[in-house]
Design a protein around this nucleic acid. Structure first.
Length: 423
RNA sequence: GUGGGUGUGGCCUAAGGGUUAAGGCACCUGGUUGUGGCCCAGGAGAUUGUGGGUUCGAAUCCCACCACUCACCCCA
């Protein structure tokens, strides 16, 4: 028989890691709901066309990272490589533009990108995602950013700061791109081959180039800040004003250009330590033209996606403690064939009273059963044997003190409830 | 897609080419008849990632593939 392994770049989240996931997700949901975000779930796959148009032909994600396949009906289907396109599709398809605007939505689930895995990067990862649809006020940009900030701050991240930039809009971006292109053409002898290619397909990406040779050219490159139209400039200024007022640290990063084509105006990332060469735990921005591009009514939007795996990695790096997940407090041990049915009855009575309970399987010695109880970490072990059946009194053993109490079998549920619910 | 590192029981690690691959953790069972954690004893568990090759002999050397890992690219 072959030994099966998980596919490259996928992860098993084992029970011992679940407390981290649960903690993060619970907090994220809570924060989102406090701001009025409502949960939405969209399919894990969509027609390929949606992502090709939404994310943009020519982006790395669309060109080489999508999990696409033909289904039995001959349709090209793609496992979602990001959330926004699907959420916008759902907004349009369900006529959500008639709801009170803006519509605030959050979701989370698996995202798929065919990449070479490394520290903090996977082929299937999990994102927590929020979107505010139908609002152009920079206050909306602020709100999603603060949500991310508060989440990480609450999780114990240190030295938080936003990486912030504006990518302009259809009014001003093309003008800047021309200026940038002209600048690069003038310095064509001092840039790398990749950048020569980027200049054709996605010119803004040259600013993101890591090649040694390109650094001096990038450093001297014109900033989009100086080419924003008055609307984009005002929008960005308002956002900064809010952030300053609230004391949320950010650094203007002229080189921050994101890998998805749909962004307009605000783009931002949050970086964290402890996740290898990958530093972004969160990336997002505004995408005012996307809904229209996907065939819907003109609908401005802002949002972000945040990688759960990276958040958990950063938490471990920062040494953040998380509370354990609930586990049973009682273990029912039983001796002899007569005691079995009574033990089952008792276990289900306890469970029926919302008291987590393990019951011993098989016919084993008491030693073995208590050993298991000890390892399960329960607070009480109930012992039911022939003697207890005769007397009608079960033995309840406090696993920490070793103290044993005789309790009427019919009163065990109440006895345990008093002791556990009080504390 | 490119480059580096690694690959021994569930986990960690040993075995400088030579007898039945060793140890620790974890797991199971016992240490008298119905009592956990500590201690003691015992047990189960590995075709040494896979396939070739070199050799009288390979976990040890060589090649290929696979996987993991780190980095580039890109991003969450």
């Amino acid at each position: 028989m072959p030994r099966y392994q998980r596919p490259t770049g996928t992860l098993d989240v084992l029970p011992e890691d679940q407390p981290y996931w649960d903690y993060v997700l619970t907090r994220a949901r809570r924060l989102a709901e406090l701001c009025g975000f409502e949960r939405i779930d969209v399919p894990v796959f969509e027609v390929t066309e949606l992502f090709a148009r939404g994310v943009g032909e020519g982006t790395d994600i669309v060109d080489k990272e999508m999990y696409s396949f033909q289904d039995k009906g001959g349709h090209s289907i793609t496992l979602r490589p990001e959330f926004t396109a699907g959420v916008i599709r759902a907004y349009i398809e369900n006529g959500m533009q008639v709801r009170t605007q803006p519509v605030k939505l959050y979701t989370y689930g698996p995202i798929f990108r065919y990449e070479r895995p490394q520290a903090g990067r996977f082929r299937q990862h999990t994102q927590f995602n929020v979107e505010i649809l139908g609002e152009q006020d920079p206050l909306a940009d602020l709100e999603v950013m603060l949500l991310a900030w508060d989440l990480y701050a609450g999780l114990g991240f240190q030295e938080l700061a936003f990486q912030l930039n504006s990518t302009g809009c259809p009014q001003c971006k093309p003008g800047y791109v021309e200026v940038l292109r002209a600048y690069y053409v003038a310095h064509a002898d001092r840039i790398c081959d990749d950048c020569r290619r980027r200049l054709e397909r996605s010119p803004l990406r040259v600013l993101d180039c890591k090649a040694e040779v390109c650094q001096p050219v990038i450093a001297e490159a014109p900033h989009i800040m100086d080419y924003l139209c008055t609307e984009c400039e005002a929008h960005f200024a308002r956002l900064r004003e809010y952030l300053d007022l609230l004391g949320r640290r950010y650094v203007i990063n002229h080189r921050l250009v994101r890998g998805l084509d749909y962004y307009t105006k605000t783009v931002f990332e949050v970086w964290a330590a402890g996740i290898g060469a990958q530093s972004a735990v969160c990336g997002g921005g505004r995408y005012d033209g996307l809904a229209e591009l996907l065939g819907g009514p003109p609908t401005p939007g802002v949002g972000f996606g945040s990688g759960l795996e990276r958040i958990v990695m950063a938490m471990k790096y920062f040494g953040v403690q998380v509370p354990p997940l609930p586990s049973p407090t009682v273990f029912v041990a039983h001796l002899g064939p007569q005691a079995g049915p009574e033990a089952v009855r008792l276990a289900y009575a306890l469970r029926g009273a919302e008291i987590g309970t393990w019951i011993a399987f098989g016919q084993r010695g008491l030693k073995s059963q208590l050993r298991e109880a000890s390892k399960r970490g329960v607070r009480y072990a109930v012992i039911l044997g022939e003697q207890e059946l005769v007397s009608g009194m079960a033995i309840v053993r406090d696993m920490e003190s070793g103290e044993q109490t005789q309790v009427p079998v019919a009163g065990v549920v109440e006895w345990v409830r008093e002791r556990t619910h009080a504390a």
